[in-house]
Computed example of a mutant assay.
Amino acid sequence: MPTAYPHPQKHLGHAVNYLTGNHEYDIPKETVDGEIAQLRARLESKPSFNPGLTFDPEKHLIKDPSAKVLTLDDLKIKKTRVAPVCNFATTYQFPLLTQEAVDMILWEALRPEIVEKYGRLPNLAKSATRLDFHIGGHCSRWAPFTQALWNSPELREILERFTKVKMKPLFSAGHFNFSLAEKNATEPPSEELLRKYREQSNGDEVPSSLGMHYDSSTFALVIMAELDENTIGGETGIVTGDNKFVRVPDPKVGSATLIQGMVLKHVATKPVSNSNRVTAVAGFCVAGPEKLDNSLLTSVKPSILPRQNYNEFYNDWAQFRLTNLAEHILHYRDQLKNVEQFDQKDFIAHCQEMESYLHKCWDEMEEHYNPPYPPKEFRITYDEL
């Protein structure tokens, strides 16, 4: 097949050497042996630490959280890049995980072998340093506690109270965004930090561990896994329909926010203060054989995110999409058995929908089409979509 950019180029937003692991984005040894090792040692030194801990929803989930919910209408978003699956936009922070659960998912991500294989520096951040990095793709293979959390029916029940649609986790669900504090750095006076924070009114220019973007998953669950006391900044930032930049307020360790990230332009902001800020992020989509998910590759394929392992990522993607399509075809076939009058137009429309879904399984792959990143839709207002 013809390809627009057979060799991804940095100036187009593409990671290089994505087929062989993007090792030029490896986390520096200074960070691995310093701040990461210290954070891991702090977790392991806790009296309650248990490397064999298993996930228990009764013990580790806060099951009756309440939070303010905002709809797309509330945010004045009338036009979207793809059709939303519901009117839900986002929640304010709500308590979700106990401290023990937070410590465990963080520790599973910070083990040396995981950091080496799945940890990479960002290529799409603002004002990133050696202390800003991503770790992801490890959960389904090497993090049993975290994987059990993402696949927990009890977690989905909590999230579905907000969205009012059936949900399930995406393939390879779960990654971590890290912005760590610099040791022995001189901190400006708090008044100066607050002034700097208030001046950050343009979401495209706010320092971030992941710049302004739309998600390639329908929903994103963002859990605060590490946040220093007295941190200034570090919230999830959202652009509203009238082009205002707002932040989801009052993040706390163990709390979470849920967003329909496929249609909500947002950014993972870095703290203004010299503070640790770590989030665990899991992608979800609509569930049920009667519906096909609207997942994309745009912002998560290996040439865009250096943390993605090429072979694991695409095998997981193919299994996920083909399984969804197979279940949907079987569901639709069973429905047809019970119709009294066969409707050709309806059948054609349904086949076209399934054909479009299969097409979206490959049309954003690097081998076929790998345009400059971010795409135009990430840089324009909602009204211009």
Rank of each mutant, 00 (worst) to 15 (best):
T3I: 09
H7R: 11
H7D: 09
H11E: 13
H14S: 04
P28W: 05
D33T: 04
A37E: 07
A37C: 02
F55T: 02
K59W: 06
T71C: 05
D73F: 08
T80L: 06
C86G: 05
A89E: 00
D103I: 03
D103V: 06
W107T: 01
E108N: 06
Y118F: 14
S127E: 15
G136E: 08
H138Q: 14
R141A: 09
F145R: 09
A181M: 14
L193S: 08
L193M: 15
R198I: 11
D204H: 08
E205I: 05
S209V: 08
Y214H: 12
F219N: 06
I223W: 09
I223L: 09
A225S: 10
T236V: 11
I238R: 03
T240M: 02
R247W: 08
D250C: 04
D250P: 06
Q260E: 00
P271W: 02
N274C: 00
N276P: 00
A287K: 02
L296R: 12
S303A: 11
P306Y: 07
R307M: 14
N309V: 12
F313S: 02
D316T: 06
W317N: 02
L325C: 05
R333I: 13
A349G: 12
C351R: 10
Q352M: 12
M354R: 13
L358I: 12
L385H: 05
